[in-house]
Structures are given as structure tokens and as C-alpha cells.
Simulated scan of single mutants.
Amino acid sequence: MGVTIDLNAIRENKRRIEALGRPVFAVVKNNAYNLGMKPVVTTLYEEGVRHFMVTTLDEATEVRSSAPDARVLVMNPVYEWTSVHEQQLDVAIGSYDWLVAQRSQLDGVRLHLKLDVGMNRFGAKTYDEALAILAYCQDEGLDLVGLCTHFPLADADNAEIEHSVHVERFADWSTRLMERQTFEVVHAANSAATLQADPRLGHCTHVRVGIFLYGYSSVEPVDWLIPAFRWETEVIAIHDIEAGAHVGYGTGYTAESRERIAVLPIGYGDGLMRARRHLPVHIQEKAFPFVSNIFMSHSFLRVDASVQIGDRVELYGNTTKIDDITRTGYANNSEQLCARSWRVPHRYEGGNVCTPPTNQFV
């Protein structure tokens, strides 16, 4: 019982994404979406991925240990430079002011000019600021190798209209900048934008994808993605309760009739989000609903006489996927992956990589 991470699924997703036409710039931030940095990066590196994106310097150091000659891009503004120089990391330009303030550290650093087309997080907020950054880099002889953005609404309900505005802005700014500078890599399409195959992004050299690599899509269902994540637990107790009895803390659930209740040793303390209760789990391919709430260490199901102590319970897998919970509107797929605790036993399938030293199961 526990979590199983399928590295072969990640391999196959990478191949299918690249079959759309461009190489992958792999997003492995937050411990590779909480699937394990070393196993995931090693798998992708063995599959030929040579560009990785993270948010922090610590993450970049983890990637570098498994991908010695890959390009590793740090997207958060950098203010500590030792590891950047020692490990030859790529760095995103947070703003014109950041660029000038950090000038003394930038010789020999590969820089990416990020265009802020609507996220309001990092990057040049106007074309004039982007042009000023480009001119400064050229005047100072800095190594400006990349051009990128991040689309804020690619996976939102109004993405078709709003995303178009952001794509148009990026296409306009980047095209004009590329008339003044040759960029080694141009990357904009996140997972959701990858599906849209927008011709205005035809000048991009890579697709910068995260959640698709792991087999999930928060937009419309993508049948060719293979989920890389399964989570199982077991029934540890069963109670027959009478009408009027409560289940769990408080009085949030009261039985309306005589019921059979199964107890699971899993809860939000293990990273099982309360949103998971909005769809049933499966025991021997039969669906059973959650009752009451998901608590810190335990959850409850309403079951029938076929369920016994020790039965295997599928929380996420082939029947109910993370995407299915996402589409209930109560949580998104990245949030569910990142919420899971590593105190839950883990194992990897489909790869000759080093697995975490603790919490293994067979």
C-alpha cells in the first residue's frame, strides 16, 4: 500500500509531447511536482531532455546532480551567485532594475529575458522595458541566450479569449526583439498552451511543459497522456452503526439509517486533500463514497458487506484520476500532487534510478 510513481509513463508522455513538433523544456519545480526530483530528472535526462526549469537555486542544484550537462534555468530572481557560477546555471531576468543591480555578478551567466504579458510576477512589463534590457545586455556584452514568458490564463475557463491577448502580446514583443537579437532558446507554451498549437508561437524553439509530463491536464481531457501517479491504502476497521450515529469529529455526518462504515488510515496529514471526498474511491473495482470529512489521519467510507478489513482501496489510479477531482472544481491537479506527504510509503516503477531511502514499500 502507498504511492506508486510510474517512470515509464513520464518517458512516454515526454515522447508524445515532442511528437507534436518541438523538444521539451521540462518544468521540474517543487520536487518535480512532488514526484521526486532525482528519479524524474534522471528519467527525462536519459530520454534526451537537455533543458530543465526550476524556481529556486536549491532546486537547480538538485537537477544539476542528475543532469550534468543540461541547461538548468532558475526563474525566481537570483541574489546569491556562488552556485550559479559554480554550476553554470541559466538565470531569468526579473526586471531592468534587477539587471542593473546585479550587473557585477552577470559576466559568464546565461540569461533569459522574460516578458511579463499579464502574470505580474517577474519580467519586463512593457515592450520598452524589454527593449531597454536587451540594449543593456548588448552594451555590456552579457550572454543573453533565452527569450520567454508565462501565460497566466492558459488553463482557465476563459482561456480561449484571454489567453489570445497574452499570446498576441508575446508574439508582438518577441518578434520585434528577435529582429535585434538572436536567441538560442525561445520558450513560452506551458502544458495547456501546448495543445493549442497557436501559429503565433511558431517561432518558439521549445515547449515548456510541467503537468503534462506527469500525465495530467487541467484543461480538456487529453486521452494520450498517461498518469504517472497511483495511491492506494487499505481498510483498517469496519463498524456497523445505527441511524442517528455520527462519524468522525463533530456532527458533520449523521447516519440516516443503519450503515456499514470502513475506516482508512489516511488523511490530510498525509496530503489527501479534503477535495478528494467529492468522488468515490474503489475497492475491487466497486465505488464507495466518503462520509463525514477527511481528517488528519483517517477517512471514512460507506461500504457494503463485500468490504473486509485489509481490502485494498484505490484513492488515485486507473479508475479515479487526479484530473477527475480537478474537474469537480474543488482542487487542481498540481495542488493535489504537491499536497502529498512523503511520510506515505513510495515506490518507483519502470526505471533504474535511486529511490528515496525511507518509506519504501514492496
Rank of each mutant, 00 (worst) to 15 (best):
R71S: 13
S65A: 11
S306W: 09
V263R: 12
G310S: 14
E335F: 15
V145W: 04
R176V: 05
A156T: 10
D143N: 09
K38F: 12
G215I: 06
G123D: 04
L115A: 01
L201F: 12
D97A: 15
A159C: 07
V167M: 11
P289N: 12
P152F: 05
F290W: 07
H246S: 15
F183L: 00
N8F: 04
Y214F: 12
G21K: 04
I133A: 02
W173D: 07
Q105V: 00
L201E: 04
F122H: 05
R260P: 13
Y253R: 04
R276W: 11
T175C: 05
E314Q: 14
K125E: 10
K125H: 08
F212P: 06
A237N: 13
A19R: 12
D324P: 04
V362Q: 10
H187I: 02
W98E: 01
Y253H: 11
G210I: 05
P199T: 10
G267H: 08
T326M: 07
M1K: 10
E160R: 10
Y330V: 09
D223V: 04
L20N: 02
V344K: 10
T319E: 08
V263M: 07
Y348I: 01
F229E: 05
L35S: 03
V78P: 03
Q102G: 01
V291D: 04
R11M: 03
G317Y: 06
G271N: 12
C204I: 03
G269A: 13
S174V: 06
T61M: 10
G2P: 11
V207F: 08
T126Y: 02
I10M: 03
G48W: 10
N293G: 05
G310A: 14
S174Q: 06
N293T: 05
R176N: 08
Q196W: 13
R71P: 01
V281M: 13
D69H: 09
D116H: 01
P221L: 07
E168I: 02
E259V: 15
E62C: 09
W342I: 08
S95C: 06
R180I: 00
S217Y: 09
R340Y: 07
D304P: 15
A262D: 14
Y268A: 05
A67G: 02
V235G: 11
L195P: 01
F212T: 06
S334K: 03
